[in-house]
């Protein structure tokens, strides 16, 4: 049990520790963003790290979740939570419909096709200004539950933390199940997986849908937390950021996805001391990490230190 959910346990400890150590609301706000992006990265890692299928368009699903909680209440009078559920369903169904044909592609072809999917979703958001506010974005109403309004830094810190830990538990459960093993089999040898009775297309599609659902939840949380959305949330830069989190932190590692989110979200904040060189330093760190720790930060360090760490991936 402890070994299986080591990642969730460590995340829970870190969440509590940051809460007590944080000396400003700013730190908590950055941590909240890390948790939300970490959630999206954990989901994408199921597709990329476990099943071995690339997606360069996952921000599109983030955008669907984000705009669902913006548009649902504003245009349809939906409760924000119901709007989030609707957005997640929409993202899941879209991933199911588009996943089948797209996931027949491999390697670079799949990369370009998913990139196209993400750009397409961002374009729709950009162009349908009557509904989405276009490039200017739109305001998002507050999340309200039984008369209680989700507002303030503290509240959102714990909402995002709970979502992250829940997402980690789900991902770790999947990993330790026959489905997780089937996904890793598809990653290593599709032909051997098929001969073992694995319906490769079905499992690729399942991984795509699951990762899209994670992204949509993260997008919805992001929008509710920010109180505002712009098409950037669905843009290809965001897609690249999420997949960079996965590769940097460690393919197939739940904890690694969150470490990747820390590097891409929190590190730039810590590097502000470098002023205009901030992005240069970030780029250098990314290159150095990939050269030194090729399997990503968490798996590489786990292999280095063995034992305890290996069990928490």
């Amino acid at each position: 049990m402890a070994a299986r959910f080591g990642a969730a346990l460590i995340l829970a400890l870190v969440v509590v520790a940051v809460w007590f150590l944080a000396d400003s609301n700013f730190v908590l706000r950055v941590a909240t963003l890390v948790f939300i992006y970490g959630l999206a990265a954990i989901g994408l890692n199921i597709l990329v790290g476990d099943a071995g299928q690339v997606s360069l368009g996952h921000a599109g699903f983030l955008g669907i979740g984000a705009y669902a909680v913006a548009i649902g209440p504003a245009s349809l009078g939906l409760h924000p939570l119901l709007a989030l559920v609707a957005g997640v369903l929409l993202a899941g169904v879209l991933a199911l419909v588009i996943g089948r044909p797209i996931l027949r592609l491999r390697g670079f072809a799949l990369a370009v096709a998913t990139l196209g999917l993400g750009i397409l979703i961002a374009m729709v958001i950009n162009n349908e200004a009557w509904l989405t506010g276009g490039p200017d974005g739109m305001r998002v109403g507050r999340l309200e539950l039984f008369g209680w309004r989700a507002r303030g830094t503290d509240t959102w810190y714990w909402i995002a933390a709970a979502a992250l830990i829940f997402g980690a538990i789900v991902a770790s459960s999947l990993k330790a199940s026959p489905t997780g093993r089937a996904l890793r089999a598809v990653h290593d040898s599709e032909v051997a997986a098929m001969v073992a009775g694995i319906d490769v297309a079905r499992y690729k599609s399942a991984a795509f849908v699951i990762s899209a659902v994670y992204a949509a939840i993260a997008g919805g949380l992001l929008a509710l937390y920010d109180g505002f959305v712009t098409p950037d949330v669905a843009g290809y830069l965001t897609s690249i950021e999420i997949i960079t989190m996965v590769v940097l932190g460690g393919m197939g590692s739940v904890l690694g996805a969150v470490v990747g989110a820390v590097i891409l979200t929190a590190l730039p904040q810590m590097l502000t001391a470098f002023a205009e060189y901030e992005h240069m330093v970030l780029g250098l760190i990314m290159m150095a990490v990939m050269i030194g720790l090729r399997a990503g930060i968490v798996p590489s360090l786990a292999a280095l230190f063995g034992g305890v760490l290996r069990r928490v991936r």
Binding site: R4, F5, I169, V170, S172, S173, L174, S177, P178, T179, G180, R181, A182, A185, A192, A193, A196, G197, I198, A206, I210
Partner: peptide, 17 residues
């Protein structure tokens, strides 16, 4: 992996601990 045929293929169940 060779056991796959004899195992549950219910992905939703596998998402839960």
């Amino acid at each position: 992996v060779g056991h796959h045929l004899g195992e549950s293929h219910n992905v939703l169940r596998h998402l839960l601990p």
